[in-house]
Amino acid sequence: MKHAWLSFVSVWLTRVLVVLAIAFFLVPIVIVGVMSFSSSDVMMFPPKSFGFRQYSSAFSSGDWWLAARTSLVVGAATAVVSCVIAILGVLAIARTRVKAANLVYGAALLAIVAPVAAVAVALYQVLAKVGLLGSVPGLVIAHCILGVPVSLLVLRVGLSGIPQTLELAAMSLGASRVQAWIHITIRLLTSSFGAAFILTFLMSFDEAVFATFLGGAHVNTLPRAIFNSIRFGLDPVITAIATILMVATGVLAVGGSLLRRGR
């Protein structure tokens, strides 16, 4: 071909761009980690001196503990509710003759794509009407909008890897269909369930838009508290909290992905 130089340039340009992009994706994480060990009370790069000052002030503050507890409760409840709705739905799609199941599945997935701010307004109206605005159950309901699609995706892939013949074998040996589902299929799905639970929990644990729009005066989750703190100035304590959260969610997410791949 002519234009050999054009090919050469584009191949190398691509490589340079990718390397720069990757560096750029990783840099903020490293910077926050480094800054969290600064012993200064103003944000400054590079830190003048190092210490555990940010960590000790983060741990000694009752507000952050309270916010963390709220986030844990909301996250766990969201994960449980989402997984229950999702497993029933996924079994219905793959193991029954119900019609139009894929349409419902598609509609549920679209919730991920819907503009978050608009959905928040929509939920604001609905939750206000039923008196759940600014309550933990209200926020759990809202988070399920994002949690159910996550669980659906994970569990559907998991279920597709389990041969239906196992259930049929159990049934031919006298198990009822429900017994076969519970004792064979769902038991084999354990690692997928673990992954779905972790990923849904993380989704809720990290979510800030619904928490801000729907949390009202009393439900203050960790992301919301951090968001509000950053809006009103750069408190260096956040670097410590951010680092702890990055490590914790990173470990959980890797665990979730490994479970999903299934031993």
Partner: peptide, 19 residues
């Protein structure tokens, strides 16, 4: 590098960029 921002959580990720 691709998945780290994904796992970081919206607020933390943007906070890192603010810093």
């Amino acid at each position: 590098s691709v998945l780290a921002p994904f796992w970081m959580g919206v607020v933390i990720k943007n906070y890192a960029l603010v810093v």
